[in-house]
């Protein structure tokens, strides 16, 4: 009965929009699914939209950091978009700062951040 979070593909970007309160197992499934899809599609960017999430605890926070690190190894950039103010304040207090994770205010800003990352870090690659 594992509900999986859908991973959408638009061009060379994978888009994940987390809409519900996730069980830990679903969070781990998402991490696996994303790694696999990056390899399968050769995507260069991943956008994870968390604007619907009312809380991000250390488990989800760690998943976001892990996905960012894995995607980098696989040649893609990840951006987390739409974190709510209350969630950001809570994460700071919790002690998680998502150091290596690219973030943006919304989907549009997220795509712009991905373009910047792709153009500046690997300008010669196709």
């Amino acid at each position: 009965m594992t509900d999986r979070v859908p991973v959408l593909q638009i061009g060379d970007v994978l888009l994940v929009s987390i809409q519900v309160d996730l069980e830990d197992r679903t969070v781990l499934d998402l991490q696996d699914d994303l790694s696999k899809r990056i390899v399968d599609t050769g995507a260069r960017g991943v956008v994870i939209d968390i604007s619907a999430l009312e809380i991000v605890d250390s488990f989800v926070g760690r998943m976001l950091a892990t996905v960012a690190a894995i995607s980098r190894v696989l040649g893609a950039e990840t951006v987390v978009v739409g974190m709510r103010p209350a969630v950001a304040i809570t994460l700071v207090e919790l002690g998680l700062t998502l150091g290596g994770v690219r973030t943006a205010l919304n989907l549009e800003a997220g795509l712009a951040a991905l373009r910047r990352a792709v153009h500046t870090e690997r300008p010669d690659r196709a």
């Binding site: 991000v56 605890d57 969630v87 304040i89 809570t90």
Partner: peptide, 8 residues
Amino acid sequence: VDQTKLVT
């Protein structure tokens, strides 16, 4: 904010 902290 306090709700979010408590739930977290």
